[in-house]
Every structure is written in structure tokens, then in C-alpha cells.
Amino acid sequence: MHGLRTDTKVESGQNARSLVIRHLDKEYVRGVPVLRDINLEIAGQGMTAIIGPSGTGKSTLIRCINRLVEPTRGEILLDGQDLVKLHGKALREARRRVGMVFQEFNLVERLTVIENLLCGRLGYVHPFPAWLRRFPEQDVARAFELLEVVGLKEFAIQRADALSGGQRQRVGIARAVMQEPRILLADEPTSSLDPKTSVEIMELMTQLAGERGIPVVVNIHDVHLGRRFAQRIIGMSGGGIVFDGPPDELRDEHLKLIYGGENWLQ
């Protein structure tokens, strides 16, 4: 389909499906860094969970990857292509390869569920046919397939504002998967949901990404959920990475380092 980009420079020793972040800094206000020298490599598939206290720049990091937030310095290589240097059309084409799931779902409330899914294809459809809702047949067919998978087929032509939180996030995930992304980013996908729904959403993401071999990077404040679903945990504190390893290596002392204090661990 929209297969590998043959023109991208693939650096030696790197998997084609890879995200490499080098020396990434972000300052919203000059001289006040939110992210400090982030170095990170995500290759292959599976879920990587970023944990850390609020305000430590997890969300900024995720948003820097698809440039919803402009990085101040550094490189973000997706399949060997530096996203930081891209502008205009090239940036939009890069964004098509990065799926994103949002904390507050960010569905277009007044559009139907199926239209929200098709939003994932907007990078591929020209404005005029998109305005007339003339999407390619295979896109529409795939949207219905995905709706079936996430169990919302009967809601296809209902407006997104009629759905519950969990249902909305399912649509959000399906929309991201519609992009056929090379990587899936999720910014606190479960924070607005109850515990049971949260687990279901994490399962759904794992399943959909797993079947398609898409790596997932998820920002999560719930350490238990992160441990349960991720194969790799990244702990952030004060704008830097302080832990990087598999979940079973994450000990209380790491959590103390990440979140500070210890009473909450009891």
C-alpha cells in the first residue's frame, strides 16, 4: 500500500521501523528547558511506556515527535528521516506516518463516527473530494472493518458527541490506525477514563498495534497499567530520562527517583 519510502535514508544498523531521538531540547520560554537532552531509540514493535510526574515534559516529548510542539534543538529520526528539519508538505507526509491518540480523544464532535475515522486518511485525500466526503472505497471499507474490530459498528453514522468516553477513545485509536502509521503515539490515553475502561483501551491498542507490527509509545501516569502492558518503561523526571528498561527491572528506588518521596509507595 503506502509501503516503505525507498528514498529515505536508512542509517546502518537501524531497523527500518525505528524512531531515534537525539539530544532533544525543548524550551517554551527561553532559558527554561522542559526537555533536557533526551536520547531515545525505539525499534521493532511492542509498547514503550513513558512514566513520570505531571509537568515533567512527557506530553511535550510525545508532541515533539509529530511536531505538534516545535522542538528547540535536536534530531528526531523516523525511519532515518529527520522530522525536525521538515516543513510544509514534507512535514505533513511525515505526520501521516505517525498515528496519535489523545488524552481527551480530540474527536471532531459534530462529525459522525465514520467521518472521524476517515479523518485519519485526510493526509491522502485532496481537499475537494474530502469536502464532498468522497473517500476512496478501500478507505471506507477499512474504516468499517476497524469499527467492527473496536466494536462500534452500529455507531457508524452517529455523531461523535453521542459516545461515552471509552467509546470515544476507541474511535480515537481506530482513527490513528486508519493512518497506517509507522509508529503510534498515545498521550495519556486513559487519564480521562475509569479503571476498567482504561484496561480495555490499553488492550485494544496492544492488539491493533501488535497485529500490524506498529510500535507504540504511550505516556501514562498509571505505573501499574504501564507495567502491565509495556515491554519497556522509560521514567522521566525534571525533563530528562532517569530510567530505561523492562518493567520487571523497575524497582521502588527507581520510582522514588522518578516521582520523589516514598510515602505514596506504601
Binding site: 505526520r95 501521516r96 505517525v98 496519535m100 480530540n106 479523518c119 485526510l122 493526509g123 482513527r175
Partner: peptide, 15 residues
């Protein structure tokens, strides 16, 4: 937020 989500999909400005 809704606009951001559409932008994140790589949609051109008119979309």
C-alpha cells in the same frame, strides 16, 4: 483539540 487531531493526521490546511 479537535483541530490538533486533524492536523496530527498530516492533513493539508484545507482539509
Amino acid at each position: 483539540k479537535q483541530v490538533e487531531a486533524v492536523r496530527a493526521s498530516g492533513a493539508p490546511f484545507m482539509n
